[in-house]
Simulated assay, not measured.
Amino acid sequence: MNSPDNADSVPLSTGSGWRPSDVEGVSIARFEQVIGALRTVQDRVAGARAPESELVEAAKKLDEISRFLAEFQVPHSEQVAGHLDVPGRGQSLVPAFHVDRADDDSVSGRVSFSRFYLGGGGAAHGGAIPLVFDEVLGRLANAGGRVRSRTAYLNVNYRVITPLDEELTLEARFDSEVGRKRFLSAELRKADVVLADAEGLFVALRAGQP
């Protein structure tokens, strides 16, 4: 699931918030390549039990990469990560959500929890699941040119243990809007089995709010 979405095959409305965006001076494909490599490193580190000498060498190599990128640091408002309408928004915190279908009021797609998100007993960490729900519901709340909003609450019900390394489906809906309040809901499934579901309240920002 490291390949980018084929945006041309997804029926999205203009300004829906799910299409890839252009970033001046940056190749989205190349940046995704870096994030994909970082995701792989996270999984390898999480699953590694290497000799101490090899861990020392690995730390040195990671430090080299850190120093290499140090000269390219910019204010968060100018960074690419977190501002791309691509799976995972060009960052490695949240498991990448791959959109299959989307409009202003609903979205469905696929997600997989890799080794990095292991909680215990082969199951995805309980804290990783709300991350995905908040990512998808938050973007849907702001889709269609709506004024930007922030999460007021997110209630998650855990129904069945969520497995690692399996392609799961996630469907989300914009249920209603009352004033500045937006109510949304979603389900995470393995085939027809609901693994977890969520309901969230997102509140539109007032003029001037960051």
Rank of each mutant, 00 (worst) to 15 (best):
S77W: 13
R49Y: 07
A50Q: 14
V80T: 15
Q91S: 04
G109N: 05
S66H: 14
F116M: 01
S106I: 05
V94I: 08
G120L: 05
D104W: 00
H125F: 15
G121D: 11
S106K: 08
L118E: 01
F116H: 06
T40R: 05
R115M: 00
V56E: 00
L55A: 04
D104P: 02
R101A: 13
D43P: 06
F72A: 15
S108N: 12
D43G: 02
G121L: 07
G88T: 06
S106W: 07
R89T: 04
A70L: 13
A58F: 02
G90A: 02
P51V: 15
A123M: 06
G109Y: 03
R49N: 12
S114C: 00
A81H: 06
A46Y: 07
E64P: 11
K60G: 04
Q91G: 12
G126N: 04
R101S: 13
L62Y: 10
A102W: 10
D100E: 13
V45N: 02
D105P: 00
A123Y: 04
A96R: 14
G82M: 08
P95T: 01
L62K: 03
F68E: 14
A59F: 00
L62P: 06
R115Y: 01
E52K: 15
A81T: 11
R44G: 08
Y117D: 00
D85H: 15
S92F: 09
R110Y: 14
G121C: 10
F72K: 14
Q42W: 01
D63T: 06
V99I: 13
D105Y: 11
L69D: 13
A59K: 01
E57K: 00
P87W: 09
K60H: 05
D104C: 03
D104F: 09
F116R: 12
Q42G: 03
L84G: 07
I129R: 10
R110V: 11
